[in-house]
Amino acid sequence: MKMILLLSTLLTFAPDVFAKTEWYCKPGLFADYSRIEGLICSEQGQGQLYCRNNSSDPIGKCGSFSTISGHLVGAIMTNKGPENRKLAPVRDRPATLNETQAVSETTGGKSSTATVTRNVQRGSSGLNNDFPPRQAKFSRSRSTSVGYTNTSWLAMSTVQQAQYLMGKYKTLAGLHGLRFSPELLTCKAYRESLLNLGGRKIFQVQRITSVKSSTAAGVSQVTKTTARDTFARGRWFRSKVPGFEGITDGTTFYNQMAGNMIAQMEFGMAILEQKRRDGGFRSDHSVLQAYYGHPKKSCQKNYADKVTSCTNCLKSSGVSVRCLDRALGGC
């Protein structure tokens, strides 16, 4: 452990030693987290690190990384891979929050050769529509940061989209102090994005070319009346999404969130919380039944059953389309 910490410290303060290493994503994996020079490639659960020394070398797995609330907090180089013992230099913005986590990994009985821990910045910066950071820069503007209209977003697999949403939901729930799990919120988003009014979908659909002002398109599509009510009665809610913090009425929020996926995710979570408070519910299943608002009780139960089944599956076996699809079906 002491050795790991020592190596960590050394690598954190002397990153230039490895500045010439080139990193590539394995085909089929998506580049993420521009904090590290080169690429870290997303996979289910903990991300895997792939690398090669130059473009003529084969790409090999050479480590893994971990995140907290969507931020990279640690990476491990394993003994395997073409560039073992070499860590990519860190080149991102200065850290402000003392939130570190060393990743522990054992690969085939061999311990990691190096670990790097980073202080990460938390707060509203974690809520930008920032995916994928290398291919597209999303504005903090309320009107232009539409993640799901971006071609890069649409090019992602369902699993990659779900992983991205889970990270954002984790941050959102943490910032609001709510206990809804990111798995539940992601399953809810998955179901709603495939069933929502007007055929507007988030997961794996065609580009959305227009957003009607009367209807918010996105993962947490809600009625304008519900938006107004949430601000009017749910006075606890104040947005944490950049650009939305100062909004104090539902109509304004509703009209502006149509252009921001994260704001919609946040608001869907807020309404879920409001339903919990209104009904005094203790179980997530009861909250979900009250959330959808279908006139048929059986449909509300079906909605809650499906989302709960998906949630349990994601928690037990990680993100997969098989689990996500459990959220679908029924009325």
Binding site: S220, T223, T225, R228, G293, P295
Partner: peptide, 27 residues
């Protein structure tokens, strides 16, 4: 949560349409 209130007159009879925030997608 009340979100809409409208008055309607049909055959000299007064009605009030009130809309309540029901579910995330319904009124």
């Amino acid at each position: 949560g009340l979100v809409l209130k409208e008055r309607a007159l049909i055959n000299k009879q007064e009605y009030f349409i009130t809309g309540w925030a029901h579910g995330a997608k319904t009124v």
